[in-house]
Design a protein around this nucleic acid. Sequence first.
DNA 1: CCAAAATACGAAAACGTTTGCGTAGTTTGA
DNA 2: TCAAACTACGCAAACGTTTTCGTATTTTGG
Lengths: 340, 340
Amino acid sequence: MNSGISIKELAAALNLAPSTVSRALNDSYEISEATKQKVISMAEKLNYQPNPFARSLRANKSRTIAVVIPERINNFFAKVIDGIEEIAQEHGYHLLVYNTHEDVEKEKKILSLLQNGRADAIVMSVTSQTSDISHLRKIHERGLPLVFFDRICGEIPTTKFITNDYESAYKGTNHLIQQGCKKIAFLTLSKDLSITKERYRGYSDALKMANLTPEPTFSLYCKHSDEDNTELILKLLQSENRPDGIISSVEKLAISTYQAVRKTNLKIPYDLKIITFSNMSIAGILNPSLTTITQPAETIGQECAKLLIKKLTRPRQPDFLDQIIVIPSQIQIRESTMVR
Amino acid sequence: MNSGISIKELAAALNLAPSTVSRALNDSYEISEATKQKVISMAEKLNYQPNPFARSLRANKSRTIAVVIPERINNFFAKVIDGIEEIAQEHGYHLLVYNTHEDVEKEKKILSLLQNGRADAIVMSVTSQTSDISHLRKIHERGLPLVFFDRICGEIPTTKFITNDYESAYKGTNHLIQQGCKKIAFLTLSKDLSITKERYRGYSDALKMANLTPEPTFSLYCKHSDEDNTELILKLLQSENRPDGIISSVEKLAISTYQAVRKTNLKIPYDLKIITFSNMSIAGILNPSLTTITQPAETIGQECAKLLIKKLTRPRQPDFLDQIIVIPSQIQIRESTMVR
DNA sequence: CCAAAATACGAAAACGTTTGCGTAGTTTGA
DNA sequence: TCAAACTACGCAAACGTTTTCGTATTTTGG
């Protein structure tokens, strides 16, 4: 309602021109120390708060970063945002956060809302359904700084932050093999996802290296509903030629696996070993505790934000390089992949 | 960088005045249908996007709601935000999200940043450390619409949304008693928190009703660090007069309890039964599965947003009533409180 | 001592909207 | 038929900043 006093009123209270007050508050060399002090103390006294919209209008900058994620109830994305917020706050930036709920149409709507300059930059992780990327291209060609993390879009020439998906999947799969698994299944969400492809490559290469062949029926591309996924996995576990090891590309599919296993008389890790990409704090208290590949979520968020802010605050910074920056994950071995 | 074309340029392309274009786009009765059509199609063609800051400056409204939470890696808060976002998006509102990390000083800084009209309203859950409430009072007295949820601040006369904390705690405790518990402990974060007090009352009253007395050593006020909490709980479990039932006010203390139990040779639910306030999707796959009191998080978020938006979009809406709106939780009984 | 430079400030424009007011041209009504 | 009302649009101000330019006063330098 009442958004406090304006710079004009503050100027009037000081018998100065608004321009002088503005310069004093922005510590301009053109203003004497004495005047600066007077202005600052009066501003304090009257609790003057500059109107951010007037500023944004004038400067054509919003000091705001938009974060677009596919899921909010997800420790990985939550941690990434925490990382972004930390750096953003240090530099006086605000965060607009949008959840696409894994829905491309929603993603398009949100990006279209961000075309008008409401945010100075966008950091996002795409939907598992995003194959048409015209909306991303549009934003990028408009010159709005855009970086991707985790679920990246390779076709857009900008900087992307991911973890070492190939390597982690390779190592994870190899770990299963070393623990004695012969028939290893791969669980993931969408075929289109960049990270899926990389992780599948890692899984596949590890199998080949061990002279095992990846069976098509062992690659499970799951849906959105947890119940459906549990059903799908259950079917796989009850099939004649069931897997004895599982590597899951997403946390929640590991959860679904645990749930499916409960409906069988299989025992983890004896009959089935499982490892998953995850950021759960409670992986350790699951029974049996869950072996995880943990992505450096906060770090990814921090790096995204650092890069963006560098670009936004320096005068003539070049565009983002078309490159992929890799921040390695860490494998935490727990009971779910123990030999005995 | 380039924020597209302005209404002036659009007007020039149409040989019209900016005012006419503005009115046409806002569907004013003063503009003929023919002109409206022309304007709209040209706006489409040139991809005209109104500048939000010019609008905000002019209207003194930002179409933005600020959400302030103490923790982001928390299913409850994530779900609440999802609920808020759903309703906000329907009405064209954007969400600025801030995490206080349970730090009052950060909370103060954030609220001070919100004084300048960047957001039209605030919906928040306070820190577990918030006892000095001058910053909240300041915002409220400034006339900025403010609602609380879950962690509410009773002293501020506005509308608050909570779950039936007293009743749920009472029922939860009673459930433990009926399952045979005699010595029930209560785990929580801070004494200052509104919800802690209510939940403790429910716990305490349930004990009294069953002729049990709440022992002081059975009320554990935990810290921020998960490791410390696990230690604290472990000590309680190893004490001579250990509890045989636990009701936890916060999800993560139940997790810590599971972790502590692992370091003893106690068995849930045989030696210790446990129930917790929680929004975990995976409570069911913990071993043993965890009995929970689930708060209606999305609904709480939706209701907060509905109320705010009603106030923001109707012309002369009265101030929020000083009232507490209760949305009941649901108790989900699982193995952790089973008799056998 | 006086021109030139430096200091410290003010006036006004600009950012992109929306809106109150004014006004041609047209329609209405008795 | 002609004043009154209506229609459809334009002009200009306003929102609160920042910044360019201008200028009165003081300081500097030879």
